[in-house]
Design a protein around this nucleic acid. Sequence first.
RNA 1: GCGGAUAUGGUGUAAUUGGUAGCCACGUCAGACUUAGGAUCUGAUGCCGAGAGGCGUGGGGGUUCGAGUCCCUUUAUCCGCACCA
Length: 918
Amino acid sequence: MEYDFRAIEPKWQKKWQEDGTYRVDVDASRPKFYVLDMFPYPSGAGLHVGHPLGYIASDIYSRYKRQMGFNVLHPMGYDAFGLPAEQYAIQTGQHPAVTTEENINRYRSQLDKIGFSYDWSREVRTCDAEYYHWTQWAFLEMFDHWYNNKTNKAEHIDRLKAHFAEHGTEGIDAAQSAELKFTADEWRAMSHEQQEQTLQNYRLAFRADTMVNWCPALGTVLANDEVKEGLSVRGGHPVEQKQMKQWLLRVNAYAQRMLDGLDSLEWSESLKEIQRNWIGRSVGAQVFFDIAGSERKLEIFTTRPDTIYGVTFMVIAPEHQWVEELTTEDNREAVEAYIAETKRRSERERIADTKRVSGVKTGSYAINPFTGRQIPIYISDYVLASYGTGAIMAVPAHDSRDYAFARHFGLEIIPVVEGGNLEVESYDAKEGKVINSEIINGMDVKDAIHFMFEEVERRGLGKKLINYRLRDAIFSRQRYWGEPFPIYYKDNVAYRLKDEQLPLTLPPIENFGPTEEGEPPLARVEGWHTAEGYPYELSTMPGFAGSSAYYLRYMDPRNNKGLVSKEANDYWRNVDLYVGGIEHATGHLMYSRFWNMFLYDLGYVCEQEPFKKLVNQGMIQGRSNFVYRVVGTNSFVSLGLKDNYQTQEIHVDVNIVKNDILDLDAFRKWRPEFNDAEFILEDGKYVCGWAIEKMSKSMFNVVNPDYIVDAYGADTLRMYEMFLGPLEQSKPWDTNGIDGVHKFLRRFWGKFYSRDGKLLVNDEKATPAELKVLHKTIKKVREDIENFSFNTSVAAFMICLNELGDCSKREILEPLTALIAPFAPHIAEELWHALGHETTVCDAKYPEFKPEYLVESSFEYPVMINGKLRFKQEYALDMSQDAIIADIVTTDGAQKWLEGKQPKKIIVVKGKIINIVM
RNA sequence: GCGGAUAUGGUGUAAUUGGUAGCCACGUCAGACUUAGGAUCUGAUGCCGAGAGGCGUGGGGGUUCGAGUCCCUUUAUCCGCACCA
């Protein structure tokens, strides 16, 4: 009987679904394990062969953990709100809800064919009202809370109000947009509107005027992680800086906790490093500089207070709030021109020529608080309004940017640290002896920095400050297809809806574009206001809103009283294993951690970190194939002969090429213009060229998993994707090796059934050699699964089969079937039943490794390492196989050690001792 | 510029973690069976060399009895951040 995967796979998929094999529930009697995939955005293109890579790996791990006796939560859902669906809607007029539904159905049918062990009863979709109810709820909780730096957690806004009423800002250390100071009397004297305005300075979800990334082409603002090199990540449209009133999340409040939390996580070092960079903690000093002839003090931030004696000028950003004030009459024209030009240049242009030095004098002077000297204040776009205070003290001798600026404008350069050659470049290193600096002369730079932190505070010039590059997340999008804000406005004050008014559902709409006045699409909806007629917020939430807490919702997806019940959360706690792409490092993975920590502060969840262990699967690139058309003809020349002709390279659909050999008939049928194509073959074959490129429709290199499943079966697809190489590594999809894996499954089948369909399995006793092969495989595969080294475990299965020869003994095959089940669940299920089992193989105990089968003799043996003898307890796995037993010991150390001892064996390789067996 | 990662046959990769480099596959070659093969099975296959033998883990150096693995240096590729004061 042949291995008929086309019959087997649908049969078991149907059975699993009918039986609810993968349904899980809270079960206090068993340990839990939570395995999560990053849920997909259901795009119109469907899944390609790269998407399931991570899903297969996590599925193998889930199934393995389940067989190990864990109660495994392994859910799946859809991140269904988002820009592409809306863009598509604008183009076609189709409602995003309709296209999203279609896409989801397509995804589901593709996923189902691969045999995943998802508990689909827990499916969530971020665009369902019953789901985004809890996204809105979490937002309102943030609106109602502020961050207390003293207790280091979020607290209710009412406590803050009460404090203000009694003590004003005295004694408050809060995460805030701007540092405010007022007394209780002043607070009480404020109008309601003013008080609300003030509270926005503290709320964790707040509304503020900020500089935002505005993308005119998309008609919306974008978060920092949605912009790359001045272009939008989605669509690649130019992005400009613009002042707008927006909702924001005070992510910055959690910067330190998010930084500290990284140490406890089992994430790759590179991913943690990306997050550390993104948080961008830097310790420095806030220093106020007096301005000549003004009451004002110019606030700057510096990490190098030790160089303050070398400050010869100041620079403020073109967007700095005091630009106007600091500009003197005779410089006004030049300053205005400079600012106009800066505005005209896009963010992208600014980034592109960072080498260009530009700037303009304000005409004002600051006073160096340590030297008392007057120094000019400049405006330049190399200082960013968004970092620190938007103003710097310039030390041209020890900062390369200040150096370039000083050189360009002929400003003074005073060295204050010994080292480097200031004729050529600045000396930026934080090491050396301080000079020309009165009170700190002769100190080492590192000591001087610490000394100056204290000195600045002693003199009342400022204080030591920790600055984070992580910025508060802009939370509103001027779009339709997202979660509505449960917010309405009255007298220009934002109010929240009551919990029982949630969810505020997204109203239907026909025209998805912005209005003529440039307002978001929701402005078109008549009746988009409360019962009393107060207008709702018009923008919607960004893509990351829905994905920030979805892992919590899976724990209790149908709960209509809360995001997740305490019971469910106490049991499932957090995600033990999270598998997904590294592209979410600074987006989703940051926001989720923030969101989770916030809910943790409020006591809704019991774990501070959402994702304990995280594995980033590599990207699967496309492998394109080419044919070579002889120029001016319709004949195509095979790769090896193409140099004899003048040819033109044409992408050919990889689905009609196998092992780089072109299917000629399929090619002729592929496109009308190739109907009468002729071929110049080598060895009777047409060999195609190839290249590694991004998987995309236009390169005809997209491989649909459905196609692989139809041709080889889901089990082959699963094992082959794992066999391709290490999970974390990016690699091109290449179907060339798939036959090997498929052949392996056929041979595995062949152990159970003869060609004429007779069951070969017998109850003969297995030999020690066969048991050794089996247990060697069990040991290897179990270790590999724990290490996410799935490619080597697939290889181990193949070796096992090679070594077993024609053994068809139940004693061997039964554990082997259970062992392979996570990788190839369909064939394993079929064969498991052929062995006479009634229950599903998913619950078969995962075979245990018994070392006694591997060991002929177990002993401690010494190994020569760097002339020292080290003892190792090891299993003697073929240790002596090809080694030579030496008669004479040649190494001095070994000879000394061996005096008076009787070694059994001395293993020598090429005349050198490898180990000594006593 | 800063930070991180990677580099092994014609290809994807493996290496008991410092101990015989190239496991397992793909591909290629040869053979068997077959009307046939893009099926199946068997064998060979790092490179040079007829052979003995020599050379081999991006390049150069070092530590070691012994290095793909550790150290220094250099090159290339990929990824992240980037006027962050």
